[in-house]
């Protein structure tokens, strides 16, 4: 157990350090005021250089599209679609059911965004949001601390609910974790490290954003929970097994409870007093008939 833990710990430290290094090298992207605005307004649906999200990756957008068209589209995608613009209609179809809402942006702001995207594109890097950066490198001991936060053993400083309420990670407890939310065993396979860190810091999912709106994780907690989730990357989720164990224990307990009730009231009247008497009398009568029959035969044989 401890050997495995140590191995995982080492892995996590290495991975974490990588993320941190990436983070420091690109901190200026988000530090840029337009970058901060991009993170707030666009990043929930768009990446620059890290692939598709709810909308297309914006890397090299100026090389692909006409700047005037972009101005028109960003200002009001819906009217573009309504006007029957072929590209707009195609985009809406590709990313259905997501629909880009009309943006309340001035042409000047749109121009700033386009310039920012162009700058990032030309630098050959990817956009890393402020929230996707860990405040410090992962250290040994973070995994255990993260585990404690995950299960709720250690309370989150701002009072947010423990992860285990809704989420599971393979092996977090003998019967697994919560299943209202996703199984996070391979959260890193689904999300990039940056996204994961970002989610931990400011979750964009409807349920989580409401639950954590007023009580977000502290930077330190983000690092530690991140470390714990990283450490589970190598496990294979098997929710069926833990669910089965849960049901099995529940059923065994149910049977035990029913047995206990039956025992507690074992002296209760059952079929009914009169019916008992009748049954006994009938039984006695049958017995008498049998013995009479028997002695009759015995007499005949003699």
């Amino acid at each position: 157990m401890t050997d495995r833990m140590n191995a995982l710990l080492r892995t996590a430290v290495v991975v974490g350090s990588v993320v941190l290094m990436q983070g420091t090298s690109r901190a200026q992207d988000a530090a840029d005021p337009t970058g901060a605005l991009f993170e707030k307004q666009c990043y929930s649906c768009h990446n620059i250089g890290s692939g598709k999200k709810k909308g297309p990756d914006l890397k090299g957008i100026l090389q692909r599209r006409d700047r005037a068209w972009l101005h028109k589209f960003i200002a009001s995608p819906k009217s573009m679609k309504a006007s029957g613009d072929k590209i707009a209609v195609g985009l809406f179809r590709e990313f259905a059911p997501e629909e880009m809402p009309d943006q309340m942006l001035t042409p000047l702001q749109i121009e700033d965004f386009l310039n920012f995207i162009d700058k990032v594109t030309k630098s050959g890097k990817v956009f890393v949001p402020q929230s996707g950066q860990l405040s410090r490198p992962v250290r040994p001991g973070d995994i255990e601390a993260g585990y404690a936060y995950f299960t709720g053993k250690k309370k989150l400083a701002a009072g947010g609910p423990a992860c285990i309420s809704c989420h599971s990670v393979q092996g977090v407890t003998p019967l697994g974790g919560g299943t209202l939310g996703l199984d996070l065993t391979q959260a890193n396979a689904r999300y990039t490290n940056i996204e994961l860190a970002s989610i931990l810091k400011a979750p964009a999912f409807p349920t989580m954003s409401r639950l954590f709106a007023n009580n977000p994780l502290t930077d330190e907690e983000v690092v530690q929970v991140f470390a714990y989730l990283q450490s589970t990357k190598t496990r294979t989720p098997d929710p069926g097994r833990s669910a089965f164990a849960f049901v099995l224990i529940g059923m065994a307990g149910t049977v035990a409870c029913l047995g206990l009730m039956n025992f507690r009231w074992r002296a209760r009247l059952r079929t009914g007093v009169r019916k008992d008497f009748v049954a006994q009398a009938v039984e006695r009568h049958r017995k008498n008939l049998r013995s009479a029959d028997h002695s009759h035969r015995a007499g005949r044989d003699a």
């Binding site: 309420s165 919560g178 669910a243």
Partner: peptide, 11 residues
């Protein structure tokens, strides 16, 4: 059975 852990998210 399917949306665990009820006690936690209920709270």
């Amino acid at each position: 059975l399917t949306m665990r852990w009820g006690s936690m998210w209920f709270a």
